[in-house]
Simulated assay, not measured.
Amino acid sequence: MGYELIEVNDPADWVAYHAIRRQELFEAKGRFGVYDENYPGEREPNMYHYLLKRDGVPLGTTRLDVRGDGTAIFRLVAIAAAEQGRGHGRVLSQMVEQRARDFGTSILFVNAAPTAVGYYEKTGWHRHVWDAEELAGISGDCIQMRKMI
């Protein structure tokens, strides 16, 4: 079966999606009790929620926000802790980049966690402030980056 990137629609996939995001992006960083599965900003038009699976097992998540001007934002990227360092993040990135191209996107943006900047630089991203107002809340310590695809 191998890898598949699915747009999250099925209730069981939503459960896996939220579990990975809650654990890796919030609780692993000491942010307990603040993750909101029903956060209103998650359901805007042109937001695509993806779950990376390998042989049917959920491994990672991201959201792609397509802006309609040839750009998109790669958001809330997470790989389950037990699966990190095995190349799944690169697979997720490649698959999401293809989805972005399919939407007519040529430039991707990301708010990279400081610990992930090296990964992004190795995979073709460059530091670039694209919206300083984004650097608030859980993104307050992030480094903004851009990638031409």
Rank of each mutant, 00 (worst) to 15 (best):
T61H: 01
Q98K: 14
G124V: 01
W14N: 02
L25I: 11
R63N: 02
I73M: 13
E134L: 14
V117K: 05
W130K: 10
N111T: 03
M1A: 05
D13I: 07
W130V: 11
L25C: 05
I6S: 02
A136F: 09
R99Q: 13
V129F: 00
R63A: 10
P114W: 09
N46Y: 01
L52R: 03
E37H: 04
I143A: 10
S139N: 14
T115V: 13
R127M: 05
A28Q: 13
V96N: 02
R127E: 04
A12V: 10
G33K: 11
H126R: 13
W130E: 07
A81Y: 10
L5G: 07
G124I: 09
G87Y: 02
G104F: 04
R86F: 10
R90C: 11
Y50A: 09
T61Q: 08
S93Q: 15
E27V: 06
S93T: 12
Y39V: 12
I143P: 03
N9D: 08
D55Y: 04
Q23P: 04
R21E: 07
Y17S: 08
M95K: 09
T62P: 03
A112E: 11
T105Q: 04
E83R: 11
R31V: 09
N38E: 12
N9R: 14
L25P: 01
V110N: 05
Q84R: 14
E37L: 05
M145H: 08
I107H: 08
A113T: 12
F109N: 06
V77T: 02
D13T: 03
R101K: 15
Y48Q: 04
E42T: 13
L59S: 00
Y50W: 01
R43Q: 10
S93V: 12
S139E: 09
L51I: 09
D102Q: 14
V57N: 14
A19S: 08
L108R: 00
A132T: 13
V129M: 06
G85S: 08
